[in-house]
Design a protein around this nucleic acid. Sequence first.
DNA 1: ATCAGCATTGAACAACTGTTTAGTGTTTGA
DNA 2: TCAAACACTAAACAGTTGTTCAATGCTGAT
Lengths: 225, 225
Amino acid sequence: MRSIAEDFTTRARIRDAAIGLFGRDGFSRATVRAVASAAGVSPGLVIHHFGSKAGLREACDQHVLAQTATQGREKADPISTRQLIQDYLNHPDQYAHEIAYIRRSLGDESDAGDAFFDAVVKQTQDIIHAGIEAGTIRNFADTRSTAVVIASNSLSMLMLGRHLSRTLGAVAPEPHGIGPELLRQLTLPALEIYTHGFYTDSRFLDAARDALEQDTTNHGREHAP
Amino acid sequence: MRSIAEDFTTRARIRDAAIGLFGRDGFSRATVRAVASAAGVSPGLVIHHFGSKAGLREACDQHVLAQTATQGREKADPISTRQLIQDYLNHPDQYAHEIAYIRRSLGDESDAGDAFFDAVVKQTQDIIHAGIEAGTIRNFADTRSTAVVIASNSLSMLMLGRHLSRTLGAVAPEPHGIGPELLRQLTLPALEIYTHGFYTDSRFLDAARDALEQDTTNHGREHAP
DNA sequence: ATCAGCATTGAACAACTGTTTAGTGTTTGA
DNA sequence: TCAAACACTAAACAGTTGTTCAATGCTGAT
C-alpha cells in the first residue's frame, strides 16, 4: 500500500524517529536528544542534517503531508475520512505514527496542521458534491459549512481517540488510541445519526433558524439590554 | 453568572495566571517563570504556594473542574454541550481561559481531561434518555455509544475551533478560537444533519451493518489471507 | 595513493528549566 | 510587646535544553 520505496538513509531514520516521538510526546516535550537516541545517533548529527529542531519539524511536516496527500484521493465514498481511517487500520502499525503526528499538528498551532485540515475539508466537500449529484447525499444549501461540520466530526475521533477508547473500554493502540475495536463500536451509531438523524422532528432546527434570523441585527454585540 | 465570589488572594492570582498560560501555551511550554511574571510575583512564590509545577497544575485542574461542573447541570435541552458553549459565549472573556485550559487537558494526557470528557458523555447520555422519553430524540438502541458520538462531535468544536474559524473566515477570539460568528455559521448545518440526516437513504448504514456482521468471526485479527 | 567532501561523534557551551535556600519584611495571636 | 508564623524576594543550584565545534573516520573521484 505504501507506494514510495522505503528510505534507509540515516537522515530518513532520524526523521522517522522524530515523527514517532513528536506524535507521541508533542513537539516541545520530545527532545533532540531523545530523537537522536531513538535513531541510534548523536544529537549533533540531528542538527547537522536538519539545521535545527524547527528544521527537523519542518521536514517531518513535509514528509507526513506527502505521505497522506497521496492517499484516498479518488475515493467517491462518503464519510471518506472515516473510510480513510479504516484503511489505515488495515495496516495499523504502518500509519500509526503519522496519525499521531497529525493529531499533534492539528492541536498545536502549525502550518502542517492547517494544510491537513484544509485538505480534509476540501476532500469532504468534493465528496458531498459528488454524493448530491449521485443522489446519495442530501442536497445541502451550504455545502462548505456542511463539509466543515462533517470534517470536524470525523477528525474529532482523531483528536479524542484516547478518550473514546477509554470510555468505551476498547483496546487503545499506541500512540493514538484508535483501534479496530473502537471503530467497530462507533460506526453504526454514527451512521445511524447520519442516516436517520438525531432528533425525531425539525423542532430544534426551526427554533434555531428563528433565533438566528432574529439575531441578524445583533452582529457581534451580545448583551442586549 | 459566576456564582463563587472572586478570590483576590495572591494564591488565586497565581492560579488564574497559570490557567491562562497553560491554556494558551500548553503545560510544558508555559514556564513557572512566565506564570510568576504574569501574576506579578517571583518564581519562588509559585513553588511556595503550590509545592511544584505539577502541584500548580493540579490546583488548576481542580479549580477549572469545579468551575465547569456546576454549570448546565439541569438543562434538559439536547446538544447541551453546544448550548453550554453558547452560554459561555454570552460572557466570552469570562470563561475563555477555562475553555482553552480544558482543550489542553483533553489533548494532553490528564486526569482532569478524562474527568471532563466523562462528564460531558454522561450529561449527553442523560439528555438522550430524557429526549427519548419526551419523544424529541430518536430511540437509539445503544444510547451510550450514541452519547459518545454526539459528545465527540460537540467537543470537536472545542478541539478544532482554531481551524474552524480559520477556514470559515470567522473572527477567532483568543485563546481558543471559538467566537459567536463561528457558532452562527455552524449551528444550522449541524442541526440540519442532526434533524434530517446526512444521507438520503439507509444504503450506507445497511452496508456497514452487513459488513460488521460478517466481521464478527474476525475479532482482532486483520489481515485475513 | 591522495585528497576533497561527506557523515558522524564527544565534549563543551550558553540559555533555560524547576526548585532550593537564606533572608526580609509583615501579620497575628498570646 | 514579643515571638512565631506567614508571604515574599533575590540569588543561586543542578539538571536539561538546543546548538556549536573541533576532531575523526569514511567514501569516492582523480
